[in-house]
Amino acid sequence: MSTAAVTPHENRAPNFWQSTNGKKVVMAVTGAIMFLFIIGHVAGNLQIFEGPAKLNAYGHFLHSIGELLWPVRIVLLLCVGLHITATVQLAMRNKAARPVGYSRKQAINSSYASRTMYWSGPIVLAFIIFHLLQFTAGYIHPGSQFIEGDVYHNVVAGFQVWWVSVWYIIAVSLLGFHLRHGLWSMFQSIGYNHPRHTPLLKKAAFVIALLITLGYISIPISVLAGFIK
């Protein structure tokens, strides 16, 4: 029947990935996997405080399990790819959702970290690329010669360049911001929110994000301060 005022032309329903909700689930799951990596990574890094032997042995160990290393790297790359694809697509959609902006807009309820996900994400990404080129591949290694296998030397020599350390500290702090929102937000995206648990989760997200950030930046600071040589 014709319904002048509310023409119900049928359309195909968007599928899971096409829906914003589905993309957010993908972002939550990939975010969670990357979070696990971040935990593992910081735990590994902190071995630097136990001396060169320990850290280099850890590096060798990682390289010795090559058949496992690559699957892990592939999963991580996939996660990064999906996380970014979803973000970019959502960001474009969100921009289109408000073609005419407000002349004035106040935030009244949201945290700073949550509102800055869009740019904390890309900066962290840029940092990761730089970071891989510096410490994994060794293409960029200002201030000293990259020595394949001598992780301890590479780290210490790398961080002795002040701007490398500053860049690292800024990027990791932004990662902390990103995690502070992302860590509880991923639960919301997959459907978990509880009036009693979620506030705890938010606090936990804050503490975990802070600890991770401190864990990471303790290294360049220690290098710059001369605790690690």
């Binding site: 029947m1 319904t3 002048a4 509310v6 119900p8």
Partner: peptide
């Protein structure tokens, strides 16, 4: 949604 009512 069923198409039996047209809303104006």
């Amino acid at each position: 949604h069923e198409g039996t009512v047209a809303m104006y």
